[in-house]
Amino acid sequence: MRAIRLGAMALAITVIASTAFAAAPPPSPLTPELIAAARKEGTVNFYTAMDLPLAEALARTFEAKYPGVKVQVERNGSERLFQRLGQEYQAKLHICDVVNSSDAAHFVRWKLDGWLVPYETPEIATQFEPRHRDPDGYFAAWRNTLSAIYVNTKLVSEADTPKSFKDLLDPKWSGKLAKGHPSYSGVVMTATHQIMTALGWSYFEALAKQKPMQLQSALDPPRKVAVGERDVGVEGTEYLAFTLIEKGNPLKIVYPTEGTPMVTSPAGIMAQAKNPNAARLFYHHIHTLEAQQLLVEQGGLRSVHKQIKERQGRTPLSEIKLLPEDPVAVERDTEMVKRRYRQIFGT
């Protein structure tokens, strides 16, 4: 399983690399000139799909470290963010400076369209395995999360707790499930694609008969389960579940026996950024061990930074069976998945 783990992203990247891009530029050091230039610009517009309070917390640590550079966070579900960026670029509006989406396929598209600029920081070059970054330096894995099964421990007994995706098809879960929607969330899009590849559409057809509550955001299923609106949640982010559990909510994470979808959420710098220096400075910051550790500690995210320390009490990534990632296939199949999903679930 380790071989499959994350390997697909590397594969995807190799496929693109074979087209027409030069090798990655040499890593650019963080210079006082860059900081001064960033201060002059004063703002960086950060488009992200990350949970809003976490994104704002990260922004505040950056602002504390580099006074004079403000971070304007624009949060949206990845699929809506992708559409929004497309709409803005069509109207020649280049507001976004740094972008982060939980649908790695988006970066495949943006790179091909020439929307990203190659840039690597020494931190990325030395602390992130080559398979976690674009060989041409256009983007790099920034944060990772899993799409597991979330169970309300007050409502569901130990014996009843589902162990696999297939367990959710038991009639006893009818009307008791919450799930994210791939038309809005990149995590759900990626997870849906992986589950579809592993279990086939027939699994979703059976799941639709359970009448799950449809939610736009991948953040909402763990939330709805934590407040007891539904017993079990699927296609939602593990990181929010960690945060909720550590705040004392009656929630439990189950890693399904078929394998858990892993979602890599890269970040990149826009080629047409209005604040190119602030964008680069921010890009430096978010890949530092300090920022990565914040995402893990405070946000419950996974990180592929080599020095990262996983938090006590969370199942380490190495012990979890993962489903393979394939951003290129997701890029190719997006429209088909959304159409098919709408037909099956009716929204």
Partner: peptide, 21 residues
Amino acid sequence: ALPAGFHTMTTKIWSMFQYPP
């Protein structure tokens, strides 16, 4: 309506501005 699993015309029109537009 969306959590309930259906669309009205206005939400449908809005959804046509999502990807693919």
